[in-house]
Computed example of a mutant assay.
Amino acid sequence: MDPRNTNDVKKTSILDPYKSYIKARMEEGYLNAVVLFDEIKAQGYPGQIRLLRSFMEPLRPVVSTKATLRYETASGKQACLIGKTLCMSCYYLIKQTLFNR
């Protein structure tokens, strides 16, 4: 091994003893770095959260967001519901449209 060639040297990390635990927790769905940091800190991890986050980032699943289809309707043709309650703006619009013809 040539000491001048840094590619031959495998760098060790203070995170190495915790990597298998972190991977297992991530496979279980725990993707919050703060939560995992607290767990490995309790196990004796002496490092910072930055190192944990940089390790976790390439292991995170790719999340693709769905595009939202937006459309416009004529006034009074569609009402919005908040929970199971008609919002007040739509209530007054419907009331005015139905009763003030």
Rank of each mutant, 00 (worst) to 15 (best):
residue 3 P to G: 11
residue 74 A to Q: 10
residue 89 S to K: 11
residue 60 R to N: 11
residue 6 T to H: 13
residue 58 P to Q: 14
residue 45 Y to V: 03
residue 75 S to M: 09
residue 93 L to R: 01
residue 68 T to E: 06
residue 71 Y to E: 03
residue 88 M to H: 15
residue 55 F to P: 01
residue 4 R to M: 04
residue 33 A to P: 00
residue 47 G to L: 09
residue 41 K to D: 06
residue 54 S to Q: 09
residue 66 K to M: 07
residue 50 R to Y: 02
residue 89 S to T: 07
residue 6 T to D: 08
residue 38 D to C: 10
residue 72 E to M: 03
residue 79 A to R: 00
residue 69 L to I: 05
residue 40 I to A: 01
residue 68 T to C: 08
residue 57 E to M: 08
residue 18 Y to E: 01
residue 32 N to Q: 12
residue 26 M to P: 05
residue 30 Y to T: 15
residue 47 G to K: 00
residue 56 M to A: 05
residue 41 K to P: 00
residue 52 L to G: 00
residue 89 S to Q: 13
residue 94 I to Y: 08
residue 18 Y to H: 05
residue 26 M to G: 06
residue 25 R to F: 03
residue 1 M to Q: 07
residue 65 T to V: 11
residue 62 V to T: 15
residue 58 P to C: 15
residue 101 R to K: 14
residue 98 L to P: 01
residue 21 Y to L: 06
residue 87 C to Y: 02
residue 78 Q to N: 10
residue 5 N to W: 09
residue 25 R to N: 10
residue 63 V to T: 14
residue 69 L to E: 04
residue 77 K to C: 11
residue 3 P to C: 12
residue 14 I to T: 13
residue 96 Q to G: 14
residue 66 K to A: 11
residue 92 Y to C: 11
residue 98 L to Q: 07
residue 101 R to C: 10
residue 27 E to P: 01
residue 86 L to I: 09
residue 64 S to I: 12
residue 25 R to A: 10
residue 44 G to Y: 05
residue 22 I to R: 00
residue 58 P to E: 04
residue 67 A to F: 04
residue 36 L to M: 10
residue 7 N to L: 15
residue 11 K to R: 09
residue 38 D to W: 02
residue 55 F to L: 08
residue 64 S to N: 10
residue 39 E to S: 09
residue 45 Y to R: 04
residue 33 A to T: 06
residue 98 L to Y: 08
residue 101 R to I: 04
residue 38 D to A: 12
residue 80 C to P: 01
residue 97 T to Q: 11
residue 58 P to W: 07
residue 4 R to D: 08
residue 70 R to Y: 02
residue 61 P to A: 15
residue 32 N to P: 02
residue 17 P to V: 07
residue 90 C to Y: 00
residue 9 V to R: 14
residue 18 Y to K: 02
residue 58 P to S: 15
residue 36 L to G: 01
residue 35 V to R: 10
residue 84 K to W: 03
residue 64 S to H: 13
residue 38 D to Y: 04
residue 52 L to M: 03
residue 37 F to I: 06
residue 22 I to N: 00
residue 94 I to K: 04
residue 52 L to I: 01
residue 68 T to V: 06
residue 33 A to Q: 01
residue 69 L to S: 04
residue 14 I to D: 11
residue 71 Y to A: 08
residue 33 A to H: 10
residue 63 V to K: 13
residue 58 P to F: 07
residue 93 L to G: 02
residue 71 Y to W: 00
residue 55 F to T: 05
residue 38 D to P: 02
residue 65 T to P: 01
residue 23 K to L: 03
residue 15 L to G: 13
residue 4 R to F: 08
residue 88 M to A: 15
residue 96 Q to M: 09
residue 78 Q to I: 03
residue 12 T to K: 14
residue 55 F to K: 02
residue 59 L to P: 00
residue 59 L to V: 10
residue 6 T to L: 15
residue 84 K to S: 12
residue 82 I to D: 03
residue 19 K to R: 11
residue 58 P to T: 12
residue 44 G to A: 14
residue 41 K to V: 02
residue 20 S to F: 02
residue 94 I to E: 13
residue 62 V to N: 13
residue 3 P to E: 06
residue 83 G to Y: 03
residue 67 A to R: 12
residue 94 I to T: 15
residue 59 L to R: 11
residue 82 I to Q: 03
residue 21 Y to W: 07
residue 86 L to K: 01
residue 47 G to A: 13
residue 76 G to K: 06
residue 99 F to E: 06
residue 71 Y to G: 05
residue 52 L to T: 00
residue 71 Y to C: 04
residue 76 G to H: 02
residue 4 R to S: 09
residue 16 D to H: 09
residue 26 M to H: 05
residue 46 P to K: 12
